[in-house]
């Protein structure tokens, strides 16, 4: 096992090789690896800025090529630092390219319990995994435009329904401020930071503890939930359905008639 991090973590003990890279150099390191995999030359003087030597990186490449079956696991340290989605893209590309030599795959370590389920379901219902806008009656997608932090920080939404999340304790302050400005509705098993800035809080049963259903593992394997407790509170599913039913009783904002949009905006 090779561990790559910017500091010594507890996982170092479990790893055979620890590569300590400088913060913010993920993209550079992976791009060098891509070049080395293809036996392309790289500028050695610049390699040092990553915190690693060319020998270390070459050795890493050799080991990867010799592996029978390799896996990259990656997390937020890659996807939330400078470069963001391009860092992840770099690693996925490296994994794909290593398949010219051996079997290699890459797997994102998902933080939240059923974030994969959300991805999977949104994909089959709308075609897109997240950041989906329905303002024209059909799904549109653009991270950076329709993603939550952008919408909140720019003030592009005028109400919010928060399901099983506590953005009031995790998001950038300008986003939290906007949630407090607009009518926010929050469903959570506990009263949270977000509940306190919401106009409506509804307490719900805890997923998999007192609420039954399904969750997806980060490798997209669905698993049944087996609750051990009976909650005095309704489940998220029940409450969302009831809100949906209440909304359905109101006049529809969408003009009937057009079934198809031949040219999407």
């Amino acid at each position: 096992m090779v561990l790559v991090d910017i500091r010594e973590t507890k996982s170092v003990k479990a790893s055979d090789i620890f590569l300590q890279i400088r913060p913010g150099k993920d993209f550079e390191v992976i791009t060098i690896l891509r070049a080395l995999v293809k036996e392309q030359p790289v500028d050695e003087s610049q390699v040092q800025e990553t915190g690693l030597t060319l020998e270390q990186l070459q050795d890493f490449v050799d080991r990867m090529k010799k592996a029978k079956f390799g896996v990259f696991f990656f997390g937020m340290g890659l996807s939330m630092t400078r470069g963001k989605h391009m860092n992840s893209a770099a690693l996925l590309t490296l994994a794909a390219e290593l398949n010219a030599f051996t079997k290699f795959v890459a797997m994102p370590m998902r933080g939240h319990g059923n974030v994969t389920g959300a991805d999977v379901i949104m994909r089959w219902q709308t075609g897109y995994p997240f950041a989906i806008q329905f303002g024209r009656g059909y799904p549109r997608y653009n991270p950076g435009e329709f993603s939550t932090v952008d919408l909140l920080v720019r003030g592009d939404v005028d109400a919010a329904l928060i399901l099983g999340a506590d953005p009031g304790a995790t998001m950038p302050q300008p986003a939290i401020d906007h949630l407090a400005r607009i009518p926010t509705i929050c469903l959570d098993p506990k009263v949270t930071h977000t509940s306190r800035l919401s106009r409506v809080h509804i307490t719900t049963a805890a997923t998999g503890i007192s609420a039954p259903g399904t969750g997806y593992r980060m490798d997209e394997v669905p698993l049944p939930l087996r609750p051990a407790l009976k909650s005095p509170y309704p489940t998220d599913e029940q409450v969302v359905r009831r809100i949906h039913e209440a909304v359905l009783k109101k006049p529809d904002w969408l003009q009937q008639g057009n079934r198809m949009a031949l040219n999407q905006v």
Binding site: G111, H112, G113, N114, V115, G117, A118, D119, V120, I121, M122, Q125, T126, P129, F130, A131, I132, Q133, F134, G135, G137, P139, P143, F146, S147, T148, V149, L151, V157, A159, A160, L161, I162, L163, G164, A165, P167, L187, T207, G208, A211, P212, G213, T214, G215, Y216, P222, L225, T235, D236, E237, V240, R241, I243, H244, V247, L248, W253, L254
Partner: peptide
């Protein structure tokens, strides 16, 4: 928003609701 700590059954309802509302649906992926 959120979606990641609720069941798939609740997620399906939520996507349907967002569609009816003409709003935006987004998860912790962002």
């Amino acid at each position: 928003y959120g979606m990641s700590n609720i069941t798939c059954e609740a997620q399906r309802e939520a996507v349907g609701l967002a569609e009816r509302l003409g709003g935006v649906v987004d998860s912790h992926t962002s």
